[in-house]
Design a binder for these strands. Structure first.
Lengths: 189, 189
DNA sequence: CAAGGTAGTAATCGACTGATAACATGTCAA
DNA sequence: TTGACATGTTATCAGTCGATTACTACCTTG
């Protein structure tokens, strides 16, 4: 049996950030223990603290990671050259399927009253806004509407109205979900 | 000096819910202690637990209270008879000035993975959606766009891009904020 | 006034958790 | 080989927090 090989601090940190994203996505900053993250990555809890200095810095690393991954998803969806907002919208749907990245962002928004967290979250949000404009050439109004829809979807995923762990839909949920423009299925048949 | 008069349990509970809204709005469910709420309401911490049974039920009461107050704000803005979405939008701006009610909702969304919290938050959200449609006669698509904008504003307030405790605006923030339709100032002059 | 219910507190506890310190183990260059 | 550095753990602590228990003070009503 392959009992954990030793990794470099950089590799282990990377692994821990991914575990942190999963853990913080589920329970938020205050609701997650460093021990949970440690168990997910199969290391000891004190080692997590040693590598990141504090729980707060681990959370910040998770938020930063989520931002970068979201930016990456948009860039990939855009391909080379100009892109349509609809393309980024489909990328967003892809992110919703994972749920973790957007959930971490939501917990970041909620925790932004903390003076150490707010700036990092704001910065990441700003980068995403500017990237949307840059990739699509959208006007501020269009980008704003795009992000607004994104925030609604993020919330709907968090309260389990859409996404993988959605509850059985009540009438208003079905109506609201149906109101979204249909995903243009590039039907290969 | 008027040292606290005795109140009925109902009155004290009401007072505690208001304190809970303020406390939970700032730090969320896991990040808030029952002692903070107790101090805000100037009662002892065990009494808070006695009146509500648990911290979780206190949080649920705060979420429920926030929902009701938001519904009330919409109803007030609509007046009697049919209303425009723009009227509700102004009501939303009024709520943003307080920040607490919408912040509690945001923390509710974030905490909805908890099986005891999710249903309450979903129910409140559903009531607000239906109320918007009912008051304005809006189609699902319009109501969805209205809520999307609301979610974006809620997030922007949480990360201190808009609202009372907004940070000094960076260029992207100014651009994004400017992109919102101007509030139609009913200039009395 | 007696008595019972209601409002509220002080004291305390057990569990949890982030962080520190001391120690162990593996790896690699000279 | 050896020694020095990097990876990782065990043990432990000090503070925090939700909850329980037992108690006190007040008010009402017959």
């Amino acid at each position: 049996m392959t009992s954990k090989p030793r990794l470099t601090a950089a590799q282990r940190s990377e692994q821990l950030v991914e575990a942190a994203v999963r853990a913080f996505a589920a329970n938020g900053f205050a609701g997650t223990t460093t021990d949970e993250v440690a168990r997910l990555a199969e290391v000891s809890q004190p080692y997590v603290i040693r590598l990141f200095g504090s729980k707060q810095r681990l959370f910040l690393a998770a938020v930063e990671h989520a931002c970068v991954r979201i930016e990456q998803a948009f860039r990939d969806a855009a391909g080379s050259g100009a892109a349509e907002l609809a393309q980024l919208g489909e990328a967003y749907d892809g992110l919703l399927a994972n749920r973790d990245l957007l959930a971490v962002m939501l917990h970041g928004y909620a925790a932004s009253a903390d003076p150490a967290i707010g700036p990092v979250v704001r910065d990441g949000f700003g980068r995403i806004y500017r990237l949307v404009r840059e990739l699509t050439g959208a006007q501020p109004e269009e980008a704003r509407e795009f992000l607004a829809t994104g925030m609604l979807l993020t919330v709907l995923a968090a309260i389990q109205v859409v996404g993988p762990d959605a509850v059985p839909p009540e009438p208003w949920m079905a109506e609201l979900v149906e109101s979204f423009p249909e995903k243009s299925a590039t039907d290969p048949d």
